[in-house]
């Protein structure tokens, strides 16, 4: 009886100790929340595990999983911010670096921070290892260069990806074909130069708008400027010199500078629409082929 009582008491204290510690954190609970797609709470649970666990390797994994929660939730920049915490980690070897840097680049790309995403892709290219992520980084880099309208380099990156990726020969051939068709110089989106458009409009009013592909706006602008010139000329004709010199010149100047300045909005918008169409069509075709 004495043995049994002592046994129960010891067991009781051990269990209480165990449960009181178990309440601190639970990786299983966090994983289960992630599987149930309750990402926000799962992220907090992973942070709790990160805070209470002493093992560096597990802590590393917790931050990675936390970043995945944000990524799955569509909060890509928050995911990047969490991955950023791992960049100076002592545990990072070259393989792990390629994983983390790739994830950083990917989340930054999805957050539309293309310049920063590009920096991570360049870093991965400098690593002396070949991992799945370092190969995929070529594809990602190509997509980033597309967004930056650097189509020549983007084409090279997609070719690099096809050469390095672990794919069947027929798949590689069909992907090469897509790249070859899209990345012929004549098939690049026709992007307009803002500088050139402004210069044209300064010399011949409305010409910049024609160049930017907005003929109706160009004709309206030319008509308005002609009306302003006509009004000024009429005032000179009837002898209203002061009116012509002030009101007339002011109206001409207003339409002239307006015609030049509206190019600042029109040209980038036109370029964006054209590049967006090209980038989306290529991305959809390439990824569709890759998944087949």
């Amino acid at each position: 009886m004495r043995t049994s009582t002592t046994y129960w008491l010891v067991l009781k204290f051990l269990l209480i100790g165990f449960f009181s510690k178990a309440q601190l954190f639970s990786i299983q609970k966090a994983d289960s929340l992630f599987e149930q797609k309750i990402y926000t709470i799962a992220a907090t649970e992973y942070e709790r595990c990160y805070f209470f666990i002493n093992n560096d390797s597990i802590r590393f994994n917790m931050v990675l999983k936390r970043a995945n929660c944000f990524k799955a939730n569509g909060d890509y920049f928050e995911a990047y911010k969490n991955l950023y915490r791992l960049l100076d980690n002592n545990l990072l070897n070259d393989s792990l670096r390629s994983v983390i840097w790739y994830e950083c680049a990917f989340n930054l790309y999805l957050s539309k921070y293309y310049n920063d995403a590009e920096k991570f892709c360049l870093k991965i290219a400098g690593l002396p290892v070949s991992t799945k992520q370092s190969v995929n980084a070529n594809l990602l880099y190509g997509l980033i260069l597309n967004e930056k309208n650097d189509y020549l380099q983007a084409g090279y990156k997609f070719t690099d990806y096809i050469n390095q990726a672990d794919l069947t020969t027929s798949k590689k051939d069909s992907l090469r074909k897509i790249v070859a068709v899209n990345y012929k110089k004549e098939n690049y989106p026709k992007l307009k130069s803002l500088k050139k458009a402004r210069r044209l409009s300064k010399v011949i009013p409305g010409a910049g708008l024609f160049y930017a592909g907005k003929p109706s706006k160009a004709l309206t602008n030319i008509s308005l400027q002609l009306l302003a010139v006509g009004y000024t000329g009429l005032n000179v004709y009837v002898g209203n010199y002061i009116t012509a010199a002030t009101a007339g010149i002011h109206i001409i100047r207003l339409f002239y500078t307006g015609g030049v300045n509206q190019l600042n909005e029109i040209v980038p918008l036109q370029n964006y629409k054209r590049s967006r169409k090209f980038n989306d069509e290529f991305k959809n075709a390439f990824i569709k082929e890759l998944k087949q």
Binding site: W8, L9, K12, F13, I16, S20, Q23
Partner: peptide, 21 residues
């Protein structure tokens, strides 16, 4: 006596565990 003592320890442990939490 066993259950009485055990109950007191339980209560103390619970309070201690809450406090730790």
């Amino acid at each position: 006596i066993f259950f009485f003592i055990s109950g007191i320890f339980d209560l103390n442990a619970q309070t201690a565990s809450d406090s730790t939490r």
